[in-house]
Structures are given as structure tokens and as C-alpha cells.
Amino acid sequence: MKRAISRFGLLRVVIFFGLLILVPILGGPVWLLNMLIFTVMYAALSSSWNLLGGLAGYPSLGHVAFFGIGAYAFAIMFQGSVGDGFSPFLALPVVGVAVALLSVPIGWVSMRTRADVFAIVTITFLFITQTLAFNLNSLTGGAQGKSVAPPPFDVSTYDWPFYYAMLALLAVAMGISFYFSRSKIGLSLATVRADEDKAHGVGVRVTAVKLIAFAVSSGMVAMVGCVWAYYVGFIYPQFAVDPLITIGMVLMAFLGGRGTLWGPVLGSFILVPAQEFFAQTFGASELYLLAYAAVFLVIMLFLPRGILPSISDRLRRRRLAAEGDARDAAQLSEVQDASKSPVTSEVAR
């Protein structure tokens, strides 16, 4: 585990966020900014999922439930008026913390189980939330959906606040991920992922770190849900608590590389534009779902560890091989220097 912030790493962050911040200012077609909002949104979701699914090895399939809870919280809070349009963003941390606290008992119950069963429990939690969104009519508007009051933003820069809010959330999610990977929490989560029983045995406070990861990850996802609801303006149970959003988070983290800082981001910047392309090509038709499933299967079968781990693995192997060659060559020349006889060098080989 690298502990120091490498200069290269810092440069990468500055360039990445610098470019993204500049995009709206430099201008560009409307569809670009719109697509970027969703790309950054998924990058933030996937990075948040990664805190639990990647670092702790608990593959939650129900995270969209927290996304939906955040979305509904915002829709309920701001159905009447949003003031100057910016004040709702100030409520984000409140919703985030509230959902994080709410998620603690849920995490405690569901993390009594491991891997497969945990995935089952979280997927069931997704359906619970969806059922509640449908059935608690007075609160959520049921199948009719719920709307957020439109903000009085200028038309030409209407998307900007949402875009920057998503970008800020992505920065926070990546910051937390980075902090985790450098702190004791990250180390404890890594032991949980490797072998929870042993970790518990040697005195790692497994329940505490698991719950921290679960709560932080859920709170982040909820905040992204808030901004999403505010942006789209109108939410229905089947869109706010859509299993495909869960799958999106998981898939992007898998594609880029679970448990890495940049993996989920890379996965989102590949998959969301690809998704957009599918939607353009196949329309909103069912072939879209089929194409999505096909991409999913291809990633699972051929890139199960993700792009970044595969690349770094290959690089490491190449470096090791190069080092090995160099060592062999050095030894060989030593042997040749010691005795000029070609026979010994042949043996040393």
C-alpha cells in the first residue's frame, strides 16, 4: 500500500477535475453537459459503492434504495419552493448524515450475513424501498410520482449548478476513498475482505469498520440521489429505485477495478457514454436491455478483476521480468568475468 501522496497522483487529480470544471465554461453542445452530469453522477455512485463493495468486499445490490431515499427526501422537502434555487444544495449534508444514520441498523442486520446472502438481503431491501415508495401514497405520491419545484436558474446556464454539485460529490467520494486507503479504516477493511474471521480473531474491530463503510457509502449515495431528483424534477418509484442503477454502480466498479481509487471513475466514463450510445442506436427499446446484459456478461467473463488491476498486474509482471533479465545478465557477466571459460557461463545459464 502506497502511503505517500505521489506527485503524479496529485497531478492526475488536478488535471482530471480541472478539465471537468472547465467543460461548461468553455462551452459545448448541450448534450455533452447533460451526458457529463450522468457520467459524473455514476462515477460518484460507483465510487461510493466501492467503499463498501470494493474495499470491504460486501457486494451490496441494494444501494439504489438509499439513492431513492435521498431522492424522495429532497422531493418531499422541496416540493413547494426552492427559494433562489441554491439553498437546497445546502441541505445535502443534512440528508447525507440522516441517511447514513438511518443505514446503520440496516447495515447491522444485513451484515450479519456474508457475500452471497448479503447480496440477497440488500436486493430485498431494494424491493422493500420500492414497495414503500409505491404504497405510502400520502408521503411519496405512490405511482403518480412526486415533483420538485423548478429552480429559477437562467436557461443558458441551467445545468451548471447540478453539474458542479455532482462533481463536488464525486470529489468527496474519491476523497473518502483515498482517505480510507491510507488510514487504519482502509487497512481494517482490507483484512475484512481477505478473511473476516481471522481479522476478528486478531482483534480488528470488524463490525465497527463494516458499519462505518456501510453508513458512509449509503450517505454518499443518498446525496447523489438528492441532486438527481432535483435535476430531473420529477420522480417515480420505478425510476428512483431502479435495479438498473444498482447494477450500473456495481458494473462500473467491476469494469474499472474494485477497491481502486480510479477504477469506478474509469468504469463510469466508459460505460455511461456507451449506454448513451446504445440508447441512441437502439432507441429506448428492449434491445437496449439486451445489449446492457451482454456488456455485463463480457466484463464478468473476460475482465473479472477490472481494467486497472489487470493493467497494473501486467506492468508489475513486465517490471519483474525486466528486473529478472537484468539480474540474469549481471550474474552472467560476473561469471564470465570470474572465469573466461565459456563452459561455466553455459552452466550458469
Binding site: 447494477i247 436491455l289 439486451l290 445489449a291 446484459a293 451482454a294 455485463f296
Partner: peptide, 8 residues
Amino acid sequence: AIALAIEG
């Protein structure tokens, strides 16, 4: 993914 493919 199989479930999604069948649904699609």
C-alpha cells in the same frame, strides 16, 4: 446479467 438478458 442472465436475468436481465432474459427480460430484454
